[in-house]
Design a protein around this nucleic acid. Structure first.
Lengths: 199, 199
DNA sequence: TTATCAGTCATCTATTTGGTTGACTTCGTC
DNA sequence: GACGAAGTCAACCAAATAGATGACTGATAA
């Protein structure tokens, strides 16, 4: 034994609360997005984070606490469309690209919606997004008789669809929704449709 | 004891394989739609069906077999839009109403899509639905430059949205997606949008 | 009548899972 | 250096869960 019972601190395993928390949150994001709350396994999250699973209890008070904190963190970050002054279609296509590249956020949201139980309904305003759409209506980039709420919901639905229904999407388009051609083709159609919804 | 150890066959508990299978399938539909595969509990399904949980193994070879058979049954039944010669908007609104009244089918579909693992991708054609849309294009009920695949995906997404993202929907519209006013308001918007996508 | 077999159930079991315990380590500080 | 607090972990534990076992029941046919 050249290394007689070395402390398991080869370099990174330093004691660092923040680091451990961050690692766990990140691993939890992967795991919960992939399998949902019921399907996720704490030992798997800990393994991904390279950390003892007990730390989940230590820092977050258990699986549920970790889930809650993750949801909250994601809600806070994504609270608003945080829209720059950008044409509606560009915005939609940008979100489509981002969501296809990393579907974890959408998956997390859908899983929360499906879970129905627990999870307080989240009370953030979202008004800013609606206001943005109303501005677009004023600019005649969006027909005046459309309900901004419906348009926004539809946009979110359109962007989530290939992630939420990948097999349906594949059957419909004949290509895998993760293929770059799909993003191309579908994005173009979203553009086209949004165009038809204007003035 | 007026009934000394009566056989547990008070009337319905008759031995009837089909009945038990049907009961289990129906209970499984409820349970899996409500909680997904990982969240569902076999003892709960059996309880709902009023039957011993061992029958799940006897008839379906376990939880997973039951899930598979349920998915298959639902896919078979709902294989196609089974569209009568009906205007596109009417069709959409009809599906919206049906889905809001009984979201189990949609929830099952979404959960399958999210699960990603296992479950063979389902190879049914869906062509008939696309053909229907192409007919609509020919009738100029749908703009010719639109991709039927995209339109169909969008319609499914639109109909699923209030079920898959109930909290987002509620924040956006200010009313609960299960309220009749919502169906009214959202359905009208879907009509309007489909109108703008025509000719 | 009896043998057989599908249908049904109560009970048991192996395993998984989230969580707890108590010891050890590191770090800041007096 | 000593000491206490925070961070970390290996091992253990109780509950839950899917599935297995073997017995009982009723129907059908020989």
């Amino acid at each position: 034994m050249s290394t007689p019972r070395r402390a398991p601190t080869p370099d990174e395993r330093r004691q660092d609360a923040d680091r451990s928390r961050r690692l766990l949150l990140s691993a939890a994001f992967d795991e919960f997005a992939a399998k949902g709350f019921a399907g996720a396994r704490v030992h798997e999250i800990a393994a991904r984070a390279g950390v003892n699973k007990q730390l989940i209890n230590y820092y977050f008070g258990g699986k549920e606490g970790l889930y809650r904190e993750l949801q909250q963190a994601w809600l806070d970050r994504e609270a608003t469309f945080n829209t720059p002054q950008q044409p509606l279609a560009d915005l939609a296509v940008r979100y489509l690209r981002e969501s296809l590249a990393d579907p974890r956020g959408i998956r997390l949201m859908v899983w929360r919606g499906l879970d129905s139980s627990d999870t307080p309904p989240d009370e953030s305003p979202i008004d800013s997004d609606l206001a943005y759409l109303r501005d677009r209506q004023h600019d005649e980039e969006l027909a005046a008789d459309l309900d901004p709420a419906a348009v926004l919901l539809l946009m979110m639905a359109a962007i989530s669809a290939p992630i939420v229904m990948p097999d349906v999407t594949k059957r419909l388009f004949g290509i895998d929704p993760t293929a770059p051609e799909f993003e191309q083709r579908y994005g173009a159609q979203i553009r086209l449709i949004l165009e038809k919804l204007s003035g």
